[in-house]
Design a protein around this nucleic acid. Structure first.
Length: 258
DNA sequence: ATGACTGATGGAATCAGA
């Protein structure tokens, strides 16, 4: 079972790119972030034609998350994170697909820091940690996949000095990320590739992809049951080199079928 | 230190992204 996450950076603007990639790699489950589409403009019909059922949580202009399932409908188990009734941003959606629980998340960027956006990021991380604590010990596989907007270590960035003042690399952001993983989650890509330079994001500026000036911020965290079945993990970085692409590349894991 | 690039909205310029 192949589970992927892709910050598509505008699901309508890149629907052809998305459909091509789906056709080429046939993931069983896809977590999408940055839909940049309100609820009613999600391209559900087009994705159904591509063979995917979907649930989504849209928002005008920004944010937005979705879960796609090949050949079936995801069974939604929740949207949004408890703990802040004032939070209107569409950043978390959760569903069961063929016996696997999938949490799809778009963690706040948090720049500039310090400031209210950084405070929101850290508070959101606490709410994610609370939800993750509910899920870590389940008897079925759980995958928390998405754009975490956290560079976990200096091995996950081409030039740490360039990002040292950025919200993605602050000690507070990293500390919260490691407190999350310390519950028992496995960072699948880093687990299988401990010594490789692996990136999932390259900005649009200054030929960042051409120079491989990237960062690793899209992660798939596995609970112990899911980690037991982990076969492989990687990044479809070739997608980042295409015409009119997202600034993120898809990341994925392959789990043994249960 | 700054800016470069991009999508969405709306029909220009701005916001947000990372």
């Amino acid at each position: 079972m192949r589970i992927a996450t892709f910050n598509v950076n505008g699901v309508n603007g890149r629907i052809d790119l998305l459909a091509d990639w789906l056709g080429e790699t046939s993931p069983d489950v896809v977590c999408l972030q940055e839909l940049k589409a309100p609820e009613e403009k999600f391209p559900a019909a087009r994705l159904e034609k591509a063979g995917y059922g979907a649930i989504w949580h849209g928002q005008a202009r920004w944010n937005g998350v979705a879960i796609l399932a090949r050949g079936c409908e995801p069974i939604e188990t929740g949207r949004g994170l408890r703990g802040d009734p004032e939070d209107m941003q569409s950043r978390y959606i959760e569903a069961a697909v063929r016996g696997v629980l999938i949490g799809c998340l778009y963690l706040p960027n948090g720049n500039p820091q310090p400031g209210p956006k950084f405070d929101y990021k850290l508070a959101w991380m606490e709410r994610l940690i609370a939800r993750a604590a509910d899920l870590i010990g389940l008897d079925e596989p759980v995958v928390l996949a998405g754009d975490y907007n956290v560079i976990p270590t200096d091995a996950d960035v081409y030039k740490p000095e360039r990002w040292k003042d950025d919200a993605l690399m602050q000690p507070e952001s990293r500390e919260a990320f490691f407190r999350l993983t310390a519950q028992g989650w496995t960072d699948a890509i880093r687990h299988l590739h401990p010594d490789e330079r692996i990136y999932t994001f390259w900005d649009y500026w200054r030929n960042a992809f051409g120079r491989d000036a990237g960062i690793r911020i899209d992660h798939l965290l596995l609970n112990p049951v899911a980690a037991k079945g982990l076969k492989s993990a990687g990044v479809d970085r070739e997608v980042r080199g295409r015409e009119g692409t997202s600034d993120h590349a898809p990341a994925w894991v392959e789990l043994e079928d249960r």
